[in-house]
């Protein structure tokens, strides 16, 4: 968490990253950029899923519909913030010649998506409608 706050400073400072270590092969940076974009698209998909739950399950009880939609939107925000944070950490690690950072976020996100999917199936099948 403290690392996250420290990295936020770097988000808006283009030159600060370049002061660290040496510039890696540009192809590694591009691969890191594509990974960042893939995570950003994952975040966009979660946000889109949140909007879809809100718009296309109108018969669901208000609490369930809004709760699921807001949970998916929040997951999207977390995913996006983590995407840019992880991109910076990887970029810094490559410049310093360190190992790439490991993360338990993918496993966590997988579990959350699985739980949300099961909850959605149950809610739609049992039909907790108003």
């Amino acid at each position: 968490m403290i690392d996250f706050v420290r990295n936020v400073r770097l988000w808006f400072a283009p030159s600060a990253v370049r002061e660290e270590g040496q510039t890696p092969d540009y192809r590694f940076s591009l691969a890191n950029e594509r990974t960042f974009l893939a995570w950003l698209r994952t975040a966009l998909a979660l946000v889109g899923g949140g909007f879809a739950v809100d718009q296309f399950l109108p018969d669901l009880r208000w609490g369930w519909r809004v709760g699921l939609a807001l949970a998916l939107l929040a997951a999207g925000v977390l995913c996006a913030l983590r995407a840019v944070n992880h991109w910076i950490r990887c970029e810094l690690a490559m410049r310093r010649g360190e190992d790439l950072p490991v993360s338990r976020f993918p496993a966590l996100l997988g579990l959350v998506v699985a739980v949300v999917a099961v909850v959605m199936v149950v809610v739609v099948l049992v039909g907790w409608e108003e």
Partner: peptide, 28 residues
């Protein structure tokens, strides 16, 4: 090509976060 600079990445993410905030308003 030059590497992606952090402000670009941050700008894209900030746009997404603002979208979600106004989206939450829409949902509520």
């Amino acid at each position: 090509p030059d590497a992606l600079v952090p402000p670009y990445a941050a700008a894209a993410v900030v746009c997404l976060v603002v979208t979600v905030v106004s989206g939450a308003v829409l949902v509520l």
